[in-house]
Design a protein around this nucleic acid. Structure first.
Lengths: 213, 213
DNA sequence: AGGTGTGAAAGGGTTCACAGCG
DNA sequence: CGCTGTGAACCCTTTCACACCT
């Protein structure tokens, strides 16, 4: 399929075709009237705009179950992320291979960041260690942090933090589950709970690509 | 601190106090004019509205690194989730304790769901197994699914699916990182990339009591 | 014709500003 | 007097509809 129309893409994504065209138009005029969008060219332009064509070295700090899961996560490489190092505070872990890569000790953190020009760090440590690790990452030059620890991190201006709370997704499901259960009683429910919502979005959410209602 | 004002809460949350008051007003009139909101009462009301006061048994299918990380995740219990069972297809895993709970074999899936009245399932299997597991969960009575596998699941109407893609969060960080790098060249950047964004929201970001849809 | 790109209209959500209550 | 609750103004996003290009 060498080209797609906004209509086809919109249907696949579950959005309005006008919205899709308007969104694309902010990136430039990459379509051809009467024809549609050249798939390969479009993919490249969007990838470039999103930064997927760059190589982003990242470090993962805290190689417990979650850190190991992240290290093994296949989706990273295909999106331009390269795991530059796995770091853990436990000396027992040092040298152990995880996802085909030896775990390094926290002592090496600063050197690793600098040697690899890492600007993105992933924190998968226990809550208690997160802020400290964060501070060291920032001091070493990291300017974006993905935080899986259940703590709110404090960072200086200019540093971005995104927090992933795995239980929030469950909470959203439970919220809808609750509504399903009390559907017939909808009239007596508060406005918020009763309001029908158009397929609400996940964390990828801003990527409705395929979110079934 | 027995009471808070909308102003204080708004500052803490990084939003406008009027928005906060309006949002709360959809839940009912739980504040006191001239005083503020009674903290304990407010927490209860919001918890109830979100379904946090209910007990939600969940099953986790696929006890690899990620599944184990989820099983150990402390945040669940405090939000009303109870891990009813850990399920894995590997017979070797059966009986092994993970997070103080024996892993059970996939053969038991249907029975476990029914015995525990589980309506929420978490899929942490490899991509190849996800749809099949999903089908079985749904057939057994699950109506909400949290999917960590990198696959788009197909489900019947009435079943909610939320997909968590761990790399998307990194992608968002990389996007901002890219902008930081090219800040001085902002004038020549496409409109989208150059546009200043109000501290955009994390995954928890799209969970304000009232979904911004 | 066929489908993009976009001005204009419509729709929603946020903020303002203040009445009203404790 | 202080702070909530909320109508109205405002602003941003989405959708419509069509001019315009291929």
């Amino acid at each position: 399929m060498p080209t797609v129309s906004s209509e086809e893409l919109a249907a696949a994504a579950g959005v309005n075709s006008a919205k899709l065209r308007k969104d694309f138009s902010y990136l430039g005029s990459y379509g051809t009237r009467g024809v549609g969008y050249d798939v390969e060219y479009l993919v490249y332009q969007i990838s470039r705009e999103l930064g997927l064509t760059q190589d982003w070295p990242v470090v993962i700090v805290g190689i417990g179950n979650l850190g190991a899961a992240l290290a093994n996560y296949g989706g990273f490489a295909s999106r331009g992320f390269r795991v530059a190092a796995l770091i853990d505070a436990d000396p027992q872990m040092a040298g152990k291979p995880v996802a085909g890569m030896p775990v390094q000790h926290t002592d090496e953190l600063e050197r690793i960041i600098q040697d690899n020009g890492v600007s993105i760090g992933v924190i998968a440590t226990p809550a208690g260690a997160a802020q400290q690790v964060c501070d060291r990452l920032v001091a070493a030059g990291v300017t974006s942090i993905l935080n899986f620890a259940p703590t709110v991190l404090t960072v200086p201006d200019g540093v971005d933090v995104r927090k992933v709370d795995l239980s929030i997704e469950l909470q959203i499901l439970a919220f809808h589950e609750q509504r399903k259960a009390g559907e017939e009683a909808a009239d007596t429910m508060p406005a918020v709970a009763a309001r029908k919502q158009p397929a609400d979005k996940g964390p990828d959410g801003d990527v409705p690509a395929v979110m079934p209602a």
